[in-house]
């Protein structure tokens, strides 16, 4: 594992910790998209089915379990927690997730390495992760004055993707025969989706203003 991959994973971990901290400390999930969190849970469950039959390292196993449990925990907070659930604004979080999940499944059934259940589900998770942030970005755009922690959460999540791009470039240069086109193309699209957000996040940070995205 190279430094970019590790930094990427840590940024991903940190983003989730920031999100849980925001929800737990403010007892509010204002500005957090339940749809995106549900998509992430679906991404993690379909990708990490290999927990049941293959072992890579203790590190990988721990991280996979953490991602599954933490997204489950966020969903539980938003749906079930007595006070947090009251702050969820379902009227704003209206993205149709089937419009994302169905095309991803059709693509996974068409473009994959192996037509097996686990391989198709793994490919589906790669495609779905690329677009899972969209409901969250749409919700942020509808929210005037995004709170700092929610902004930081999305920024860290995008940062994790950018570090993975560097990880792949590093691996291409150092590992002969290393290639994974499905992951590279999906990952590049995923990172590109954050460009606009990055621009406004950095702008508001430099001007010392609260983040608000133009609609």
């Amino acid at each position: 594992m190279n430094i970019f991959r590790f930094a990427g994973d840590m940024t991903h971990l940190l983003s989730i910790i920031v999100l849980l901290l925001k929800i737990n400390a403010t007892k509010s999930c204002a500005g957090v998209s339940l749809k995106t969190q549900e998509l992430y849970l679906l991404v993690f469950v379909t990708r990490y089915l290999d927990l049941l039959y293959s072992y890579i390292s203790l590190y990988n196993t721990f991280m996979k379990l953490f991602f599954i449990c933490s997204s489950g925990c966020v969903i539980w907070y938003i749906r079930e927690h007595k006070t947090v659930s009251q702050t969820y604004d379902s009227a704003q979080d209206t993205f149709r997730v089937l419009f994302l999940a169905c095309p991803c499944m059709i693509l996974a059934l068409t473009v994959n390495h192996d037509f097996t259940v686990t391989e198709v589900l793994w490919t589906f998770s790669i495609y779905l992760e690329a677009v899972a942030i969209l409901p969250q970005l749409v919700l942020l755009q509808r929210t005037k004055n995004v709170d700092t922690l929610t902004g930081n959460y999305v920024f860290l999540l995008g940062g994790y993707r950018a570090l993975y791009l560097l990880n792949w470039i590093y691996r291409i240069l150092t590992e002969p025969g290393y290639r994974q086109w499905i992951v590279w193309i999906s990952g590049t699209i995923q990172t590109a989706i954050y460009c606009d957000f990055f621009y406004y996040y950095i702008k508001s940070w430099r001007n010392n203003e609260r983040l608000s995205l133009p609609s």
Partner: peptide
């Protein structure tokens, strides 16, 4: 086989 290595990432 190289494609399988992709699964060492998260």
């Amino acid at each position: 086989a190289a494609e399988e290595d992709a699964k060492d990432e998260l």
